[in-house]
């Protein structure tokens, strides 16, 4: 059984078809990258996988650990181990990072039927995860994403990822808004979090992030479908020849 199997997926937003028959299989421990021009449905795929309201799956199946998740609520998918690092992380005024993390960690443990983390263990986890991406104590006391810079918001997503340790992490344009140094830090953090049991789906425009996080597979998406798949060399070819150049060979 694979971690994720997407078969002939069709997704509509407000009756407009954005994803038009997409197939993708991700196995445990793999890193997949999806690249493609603007407006081809990459972010729509990410949102549809986590169950965003208004994203209607009209056809196809999404099997996660062998179970069809297309009818599941976003929180059920999250509790099953799917995580989305948002392209535009949302500000939650008045809710401190630390309380937010405590609440979501508790919710997960409750779902799994295990006792809440002790305050000591919780703070240890916070500290370790924060260290990984350079989130300091000051930031942890602030409201979630409120007043964070673009880079801080992205780091915060990976901080949460480190805290929650999902099995499937979808990173939606994590590199946008990150400077070179931050990109390196965040990428190293992700490499640290890689195991044989979790997988990553990286959505990006540029190859530069893939210099740090080596993908096992690279897919090119165009007009709602994956049109070409290959290994890391495909990303390099893209960088050199552009989407038109690579896809023309098709």
């Amino acid at each position: 059984m694979k971690l994720l199997e997407i078969k002939d997926l069709h997704v509509n937003i407000e009756d407009k078809e954005i994803i038009k028959g997409l197939n993708l299989t991700i196995d445990y421990g793999e890193v997949h990258a999806i690249m493609g021009p603007n407006g081809t449905g990459k972010s729509t795929l990410a949102s549809a996988l986590v169950g965003k309201p208004g994203y209607e799956i009209t056809k196809g199946t999404v099997l996660y650990k062998g179970k069809d998740i297309t009818g599941m609520e976003p929180e059920e998918r999250a509790l099953e181990g799917i995580f989305l690092a948002f392209q535009y992380p949302v500000e939650i005024p008045g809710v401190s990072m630390i309380n937010f993390m405590k609440t979501i960690i508790d919710a997960r443990r409750k779902h799994k039927g295990i006792d809440p983390l002790s305050p000591v263990d919780f703070l240890k986890l916070v500290k370790e995860s924060g260290k990984l991406v350079g989130i300091n104590d000051k930031m942890k006391g602030r409201a979630v994403n409120e007043g964070f810079s673009g880079g801080e918001k992205k780091k915060n997503e990976i901080f949460q990822l480190a805290m929650l340790k999902p099995e499937l992490a979808i990173l939606d344009e994590l590199d946008s808004g990150l400077d070179i140094d931050s990109l390196r830090i965040v990428s190293e953090a992700i490499n640290n979090l890689r195991t044989t049991n979790n997988s990553f789906l990286i959505i990006t425009h540029y190859q530069r992030m893939l210099d740090y996080i080596k993908p096992d597979y690279v897919h090119i998406m165009n007009e709602g479908k994956i049109v070409k798949s290959g290994d890391k060399s495909l990303a390099i070819a893209l960088e050199e020849k552009g989407y038109d150049g690579v896809m023309a060979k098709n």
Partner: peptide, 21 residues
């Protein structure tokens, strides 16, 4: 939606947002 993707159900997420407000 953001909170739900972290594993909180709709009611929990609403309660947190309202009380923060």
């Amino acid at each position: 939606f953001y909170m739900r993707t972290r594993g909180l159900d709709e009611k929990e997420a609403k309660d947190i947002l309202l009380s923060a407000f």
